[in-house]
Amino acid sequence: MDVTLKGEKFQTNAQPPQVGDDAPSFTAKNLNEETVSLSDYKGDVLIISTVPDIETSTCSRQTNTFNDKAEDLKNTRIISISTNTIEQQTKWAESKVLSSDILHDSDRSFAKDYGLYIEAIDKMARTVFVINRNGQIVYREVVKEMAEDPNYEEALSAARHEEAELN
């Protein structure tokens, strides 16, 4: 899939999963170096927010926005994933109160399995997935211009809709 970064075109390693697909299984490490997998979120609505580099302003804003919204969602868990090192993510998180999970994809396995890996810059594309409690993708946004923010309200609306289905 083609994406751009400040107008320069890049190609991801594959097509990201589509709405209606089962979310591909994955493992990544959290800030405590514990292995986290998709199955750890089974039964919850899940927002997966991916960012190219948590140390940039857009990625930091995206991670902050979803982290802040996590408190408002009752049956939704939010994870943010980047290819940053644990040291970079830990430094970013130092002054934050985390309501979401921050995962690092050091081996790029998540990025590759989800078709988001951009080898030319060793980053992952900016995306948001909402996964229902059965593990199916119900919302997907691949941000075409990686320097731009995703549509937060559409993703949150999809998560709220799934939460309403739980009641």
Rank of each mutant, 00 (worst) to 15 (best):
N84C: 15
H104L: 08
Q136E: 15
A14E: 15
I81K: 07
S80I: 07
N151V: 08
I47T: 08
K112D: 01
S80M: 11
N167C: 01
V142L: 14
K42R: 14
S109T: 07
L116I: 11
S39L: 11
A111G: 01
Y152I: 02
Q15H: 08
K91Y: 09
N30E: 04
H104K: 10
T85V: 07
G20F: 02
K69F: 07
R126I: 01
T58V: 13
F110E: 03
S95E: 09
K6N: 12
F26D: 00
E145V: 11
S157H: 05
A155M: 04
V142K: 04
I79T: 10
A147G: 06
T50H: 01
T58P: 15
L156Q: 05
D72A: 12
E94A: 13
T127A: 12
N13L: 02
V142M: 15
V130G: 00
V128E: 08
A23D: 00
M124V: 05
A111M: 06
N64W: 14
V143Q: 07
E145P: 03
V142I: 13
T85I: 08
T56K: 03
K6T: 10
V19T: 14
K9A: 08
P52H: 04
N13P: 06
R126K: 07
V45S: 06
H161L: 09
K9N: 14
S109H: 03
T76A: 06
D21C: 05
G115Q: 09
V143C: 11
A111F: 01
T90C: 04
I118E: 04
N132P: 15
N32R: 10
H104R: 07
T83V: 14
L31Q: 03
K96T: 12
E55R: 12
I78G: 04
A111I: 04
E55P: 05
Q18N: 12
D113E: 05
D44C: 11
H161R: 02
E34P: 05
R133V: 01
N64Q: 04
L156C: 13
P24M: 09
S49A: 15
Q11P: 06
T56D: 04
D22H: 15
K42D: 04
K144P: 12
T4W: 02
R133P: 13
S100Y: 05
I131K: 00
N167F: 07
E87H: 09
L46Y: 06
M124C: 10
F110Q: 09
G20H: 04
L156R: 05
A28C: 02
D149C: 05
G43E: 00
S80P: 02
V143S: 09
L31W: 00
D101L: 04
T27R: 07
N134Y: 14
F129R: 00
T35Y: 04
L166S: 10
D105Y: 07
R140T: 06
Q136M: 12
T127L: 08
Q18G: 07
A147L: 04
D2W: 09
S60A: 09
L103N: 02
S157V: 13
P52R: 00
E154L: 13
S49I: 02
F26C: 03
L31V: 11
S99E: 11
A70D: 02
G7V: 11
T65Y: 11
F66V: 10
E94N: 15
D68S: 12
N32M: 03
Q89M: 15
